[in-house]
């Protein structure tokens, strides 16, 4: 009994001590763990190379027992020759990471928080109207709750159209289902542009296009795929090939706001502009973190448009695909039913 107690005590003390030894050496020491090598390698070439491991992942002095447990388990697995897949952040860690992102990227975080992409698990998975009429399936997790462990049945139950529905893990209720790491990867090859002051002067599309961390978290492979490897689809409108903006960042948007396989504009969840706004990038109107477009018309249009209308008060309804005012595909002919006047 006493011996057993001693063993437990030693164990309890040893695991954090081991973690401390392991981590106090900084990134080099982290790389001592062979399984961790690739992550350290990616990080060392990334925009976050100046941010040390502990700043995001916490250090050995944490009281979080899971950290020590995971470390101990990995050593044990290594010992037994049953080494797991590459280490990656779990669902909980991805959510915890968000406050660390906020620590440096305050403004972006606040913008995201105010926009629709900050929707919680509760909002997305317990939507009565949706669940009564649509099938709950694993593909939902491609965009919503992509970091969730397990299958759709491990997130929401029951999987029918009768309900009542509940979250299988109540702790997810208030958590964001589209976290930072849905569209950003911290360990990603590529250099930061430079000093903050310089960045401020170069703000704009150019800068963002070259952000190395932009990408889409592919739930299938449990890894972020950088934006440069994603494709903006060649969209069509009833057989006519649409002019598409060259903005590569849109490729990330298209992963979720995606057309059906036939690539017809407006099909599925697609909102490719095809009327007077054809050729505009998603991000020309949508602020990338807040997602909203309010007041963005004024960025391009004079307050009174050529038609003599106030663009700020125009009905630009976008939720209704059939609306003639839908800003994504409003065409000249929608207003000029008797023929579009010639340019003066």
């Amino acid at each position: 009994m006493v011996v057993a107690g001693l063993v437990v005590l030693v164990g309890v003390l040893l695991a954090p001590a081991g973690s401390l030894l392991y981590e106090s050496g900084g990134p080099e020491a982290c790389a001592n763990c062979h399984e961790m090598g690739r992550q350290v390698e990616l990080w060392s070439g990334s925009a976050h190379q100046e941010v040390k491991c502990g700043a995001c992942h916490g250090d050995a002095l944490t009281m979080d027992a899971r950290v020590h447990w995971t470390n101990a388990r990995r050593v044990a697995e290594h010992w037994m020759g049953r080494i797991g897949e590459e280490p990656r952040l779990g669902e909980g860690q991805v959510l915890e990471m968000m406050s660390r992102c906020e620590g440096c990227h305050e403004q972006e975080f606040a913008a995201w928080q105010a926009g629709p992409h900050a929707a919680t698990y509760e909002r997305l998975f317990l939507d009565e109207k949706h669940n009564h009429t649509r099938h709950l399936m694993n593909d939902c997790l491609r965009c919503h709750g992509a970091h969730a462990e397990g299958a759709i049945g491990d997130v929401v139950a029951p999987l029918d159209t009768k309900g009542p529905w509940r979250l299988v893990r109540e702790e997810l209720r208030g958590q964001p289902a589209i976290p930072c790491m849905q569209c950003h990867a911290v360990h990603r090859e590529g250099q930061v542009l430079g000093r903050k002051r310089l960045e401020a002067k170069m703000a704009g599309r150019q800068q963002e296009t070259h952000r190395p961390g932009l990408g889409f978290y592919d739930r299938r492979s449990r890894a972020g795929v950088r934006a440069g490897l994603l494709r903006v689809p060649k969209m069509e409108d009833n057989g006519r090939v649409l002019r598409m903006s060259a903005d590569g960042r849109q490729a990330v948007c298209y992963q979720c706001h995606a057309p059906l396989a036939g690539r017809q504009a407006g099909s599925g969840d697609d909102r490719t502009p095809k009327g007077v706004h054809e050729g505009l990038s998603c991000l020309a109107c949508h602020e990338q973190h807040r997602g909203t477009t309010r007041a963005s018309c004024a960025t391009c249009h004079p307050r009174l448009s050529n038609c003599g209308r106030d663009v700020e008060t125009m009905d630009t309804t976008f939720a209704n695909a059939k609306s003639g005012h839908n800003v994504h595909w409003v065409a000249c002919a929608d207003c000029h039913a008797k023929g579009v006047p010639r340019r003066r």
Partner: peptide
């Protein structure tokens, strides 16, 4: 049958369908 149509991904035979 209460389930949606095929979304035409390239991972079919050998895999379970993500959209049922």
């Amino acid at each position: 049958g209460g389930r949606p149509g095929c979304m035409r991904c390239r991972w079919c035979v050998g895999f379970a369908c993500e959209v049922d």
